[in-house]
């Protein structure tokens, strides 16, 4: 994980989400000379990163994976000066001149924010998950792994985020059950290899998580691997990184208006009701879920934001006269 978290300086823009929408917005804002930071959970945390093959991105005629296309977009944004930090955003303060973005690794301050978190959020909880939150159920291994020293824990997920968290847990836990809903893990191969080679990890592929069991504390997990009978195994901790099909907006904590579909509401330049706060990509509704559209929205927001911030700067200069 990247740990450039000591930079307490003010960014012009913090972009939450490094998929095609966020990376393209970063390309435009960085190229316009704005101090740009992209926060992202990992290369395969979003829809493009886990897409096997992209055949309809204009101009790209060779066979290319989603992750590779995304890496190219990120490299391009970096070449113009955008910084990328691997971190999971857990909260924000948007309704202030200087906005704050809280991550698991650090806190980031900026004049503007672009929300580009995509739509792989979960809509429903597993049975027992909500009741046992903080009693063994966790979404942050870095926060809570130490409570599970020499105990058995479970990780559910398939992205690089889930694998990184599982590997972190192996430093404390005696055994890590890794329940992957798919046949394959969706992450860079070296990360997958590291997981598979770790003696503390037992991987269950094509496995559905059914229930976290416990009264006062997590006691067991009930799950079923494809073609097998249901199993219940004792565990003390359950770390959940599953994905779904809902816009990821929980970290906004009601600070932005959402429509009935749970999507962020924006104007025609992708600005929300809060000046300086934009939203682009799959986190919006009425949206064709295509890379080219997400990238286009990122470009519009990046340019609009640049114009707005430069305008404000000009006013500040005028006042100073």
């Amino acid at each position: 994980m990247t740990t450039e978290t000591n930079d307490t300086s003010l960014y012009d823009v913090v972009i939450i989400g490094g998929g095609p929408a966020g990376a393209t917005a970063a390309l435009y804002t960085a190229r316009a000379g704005m101090k740009t930071l992209v926060l992202d959970k990992g290369l395969t945390a979003g829809a493009l990163g886990i897409t096997g093959k992209i055949a309809n991105y204009p101009g790209l005629t060779e066979e290319i994976s989603g992750a590779e296309l995304l890496e190219r977009m990120r490299d391009q944004a970096k070449s113009f000066g955008a910084a990328f930090i691997t971190d999971k955003v857990i909260g924000v303060i948007l309704n202030a001149e200087e906005k704050m973005v809280f991550g698991n690794q650090g806190t980031y301050n900026s004049r503007a924010v672009i929300v580009a978190t995509g739509s792989l959020g979960r809509g429903t909880h597993i049975k027992g998950e909500e009741e046992l939150l903080g009693k063994g159920v966790s979404y942050c291994a870095t926060c809570d792994a130490a409570f599970f020293k020499d105990q058995d824990v479970m990780v559910a997920g398939s992205s690089d985020e889930a694998i990184e968290e599982a590997l972190y847990l192996t430093r404390f836990a005696s055994r890590v059950l890794f329940l992957c809903p798919h046949e394959d893990l969706k992450a860079p191969q070296e990360l997958i290899d590291e997981l598979l080679e770790n003696p503390k990890v037992t991987l269950y592929r094509e496995t559905a998580l059914h229930e976290i069991i416990g009264t006062e504390q997590v006691e067991a997990v009930r799950f079923q691997q494809k073609g097998q009978t249901e199993e219940t195994l004792p565990i003390k901790g359950a770390f959940i990184y599953l994905q779904g099909g809902r816009p990821i907006t929980d970290f906004l904590q009601d600070q932005l208006e959402l429509n009935e579909g749970g999507c962020v509401v924006v104007d025609n330049e992708f600005q929300t009701a809060i000046p300086g706060v934009y939203a682009v990509g799959d986190v919006l509704c009425n949206h064709v879920k295509q890379v080219v559209i997400a990238a286009g929205e990122g470009a519009v927001a990046g340019m609009a934001l640049e114009k707005a911030l430069r305008g404000r700067r000009k006013i500040v200069v005028d006042w100073a006269k």
């Binding site: 857990i90 809280f102 009693k135 063994g136 942050c140 926060c143 409570f147 599970f148 904590q253």
Partner: peptide
Amino acid sequence: YGVRGIPTMLFMYNGEVVHSQVGALP
């Protein structure tokens, strides 16, 4: 107190836990 995740905030009065809050709140 069975804390297994942080932050956990316990609201206490007269030595008794009257409410507990797991996780950050706005």
